[in-house]
Write a protein that binds this DNA or RNA. Sequence first.
RNA 1: GGCCCGUUGGUGAAACGGUUAACACAUCGCCCUCUCAAGGCGACAUUCACGGGUUCAAAUCCCGUACGGGUCACCA
Length: 485
Amino acid sequence: MEKVRTRFAPSPTGYMHIGNLRTALYAYLVAKKHKDGVFVLRIEDTDQGRLIEGATDIIYTTLKECGLKHDEGPDVGGEYGPYIQSERMKQGIYKKYAMEMVEKGKAHICFCSEEDIQSQKEVAEAKGESFIYRDPCKKLSKEEIQKRIDDGEPYVIRQTIDPNGTTSFDDEVYGTITVDNSTLDEMILLKSDGFPTYNFANVIDDHLMAITDVVRGNEYLSSTPKYNLLYEAMGWEKPRYIHCPPVMKDEHHKLSKRNGDASFNDLVAKGYLPEAILNYIALLGWSPSEEREIYSLSELCEAFDVKRINTSGAIFDIEKLKWMNATYLRNMDNDKYIELIRPYVNKAIGDSYDIHKVAHILKERATTLNEIEEMLDFIKELKEFDVTLYTNKKMKTTPEVALNSLKEAKRVLGELSEWNHDSIYNCLMALVSELGVKNGQVLFPVRVALSNKAFTPGGAIEIADILGKEETLNRIAKAIEDLSE
RNA sequence: GGCCCGUUGGUGAAACGGUUAACACAUCGCCCUCUCAAGGCGACAUUCACGGGUUCAAAUCCCGUACGGGUCACCA
């Protein structure tokens, strides 16, 4: 069987958004499902006006962070280079093929101005008619064309389509799609600045780079017949098409970088793990055949199947991503987890506390890395006293009960010589049975006294252990004082 | 407007003519429990946009309607 080659072909115009990244992921998976599959990165910078400085670097770093390693690309080379379209243009690749198309009668030189066509279109639309541009330049004689070119008149090269007949193609996801050639408009292949359009460059490069499977968003579904006409004109073999449904922000809108929604970088900045993000978006528009949701990238390669890609758009649900991120965090190897949270912990409380103990109370609870700072804030500095916190119906505690428990706790803890989780536990549980009350009657007030928060990661014993004996006793004393007033 | 595509619970979705319409997130209960989480258990679509048809049998096949999205750029 032929070697599968896919490509991710972004245009460097800004951040990488989630829909884009998912397309990259699917392209990667299609290739890497096969042991010798090749994933290519090609930069489509044919729109010189929209280029954004540094955008290419964002593409490199995003792919790298996600583990979507490309086998060929501008930065890693490969035998089908160059991999940047502006560089390919300098080699005259597109012009050459465009002229070949003209010679074959499948394209023609066009001198029409953009404004002219636009105004004709507006007139047609005002009349409620559908607009298919009928290019008068098709009738120009060779001599006249040559003369106008020699005169320096700007021109484009436009695809020539015979309006008779139909064109159809098989999409791996959407099935067979057939359209009437009369509905196809003759797209520009080469712009007046000499750059190819996406439409043209894409076809040329996919062929030249021996791409076997074209993975892209379904917004290209309706132009694919035109691309196939190009392949046919050149006598090239067509690739398999894998069009993906869109990733939506809500029922009506695609996810977009505008409005600041969900770009990969944003999510990482908000404390989401690249692995979790990737795993989650794999499930937006695709579902595995088994009942499972957590997949590493290599497991995805194995499980992925183009036939199970959906045809309808999927709404991006941050709640589910949160859940997935939390489960990645929880399932993480302890040492790795500690290294991951260390900067966040240090930022919140410095590095003077035992990070293993802190990690322990955090691991089951934090859903994103960014929550850590707020979760730990009480450790560094005791929050403001609030008497209402001591009243808890379920624990059957009141400020009075709490005051008594805290006095007793202060006494027994003060006598503790060894200060660790077990000793604190034994000490307080002994007090509980001595007083003949439920655990919560003692432990709940102590936890509140140590934090002045309604909710904390970890319980009284764990917090006391982290804070150390002196600080624990000081906080309890402070609480007794506050409660006494 | 023409053409193309889509439509299963709040969300992601399974099902490939015959199931009580999976599963996961969210939500809501209960249990566990020193709070919150985590974990355990349970509830949550008499129904698959709607209307016809085919069939002994339809969420699944066909046709139509509605609604939604895409496309019709010298943007990709």
